[in-house]
């Protein structure tokens, strides 16, 4: 009944929604209009070959750099979310450590062209084959499949904003100190998301959202591949990867 009557709870939820949307707009890294305008600007055959010829370590380093940039925007998003900075520092770190990459993967659907299975990467749209020298075909395929499945939901920007806030503020993450406080914030975000969906007659979306396990599995796959890379190229991770990336995944 939150939407039907202008109760103070309803007003609070509306303020929270506006805060999430503003936080998201300010930290979305790439504007949806720009991504849309450039969605057919793909790498040429020669450019793809040049990427494929790069040594594995250089390609890993580049991808780690792009992931780290994206994560920095997610950290800024979290900091602007009302209630997030009121959590204790342990819980802020727990939520970001577990959820930042998941949010990056959700945000990636905006930068994915499902019509030709390409993703915006270093200035142009790239197909999965561009990432060949990483040596993790399965992970790349899984990420592309995930982006494709999210694109099929035709998320609006508001829906991406609220869904990613919910991916981040998850009271089920292990090692939280004040789980009840996180659960309260998660509950408010959940109501805000449902109110938005009801208002836009998109309630059907709820049943089609990816299960949390799917995001978790993708993140585990990423960490496993990083460990495999580390065994192949000991020392490179420490010498050349962004410190924030190492802190989160190594």
């Amino acid at each position: 009944g939150l939407l039907e009557s202008p109760t103070s709870a309803g007003v609070e939820i509306e303020h929270l929604t506006q805060n999430v949307l503003k936080s998201y707009r300010e930290t979305c890294q790439l504007r949806a209009e720009d991504l849309q305008l450039r969605r057919w600007d793909t790498f040429s055959r020669e450019e793809v070959c040049a990427y494929q010829r790069k040594p594995m370590e250089e390609m890993w380093q580049r991808c780690a750099g792009r992931i780290t940039e994206a994560i920095q925007y997610v950290v800024e998003f979290a900091k602007r979310l009302r209630g997030f900075m009121d959590l204790c520092q342990n819980d802020q770190i727990v939520l970001l450590k577990a959820g930042a990459m998941e949010v990056v993967l959700v945000r990636m659907c905006r930068a994915f062209n499902a019509d030709n299975r390409t993703v915006f990467f270093e200035g142009k749209y790239a197909g999965a084959e561009l990432f060949r020298s990483l040596g993790c075909h399965e992970l790349i395929s899984s990420i592309f499949d995930f982006a494709q499945s999210l694109c099929a939901l035709h998320f609006s920007e508001s829906e991406v904003a609220l869904f990613s806030a919910l991916v981040l503020v998850n009271a089920n993450r292990p090692w939280l100190q004040d789980q009840a406080k996180v659960a309260r914030l998660q509950g408010h975000l959940d109501v805000a998301f449902r109110v938005l969906l009801r208002r836009t007659r998109r309630e059907g979306l709820l049943a089609r959202l990816p299960p949390p396990g799917r995001l978790r599995a993708l993140c585990s796959q990423h960490v496993e591949q990083l460990q495999a890379f580390r065994r192949l190229h000991p020392g490179v991770l420490h010498a050349a990867f962004p410190p924030l990336y190492r802190e989160l995944f190594a």
Binding site: Q72, Q89, Q92, I93, L96, K97, L244, E247, L248
Partner: peptide, 17 residues
Amino acid sequence: LQEKHRILHKLLQNGNS
């Protein structure tokens, strides 16, 4: 946890950038 995540901790402590 803060000890193991100094960069994240620092990013969280900095004002909005």
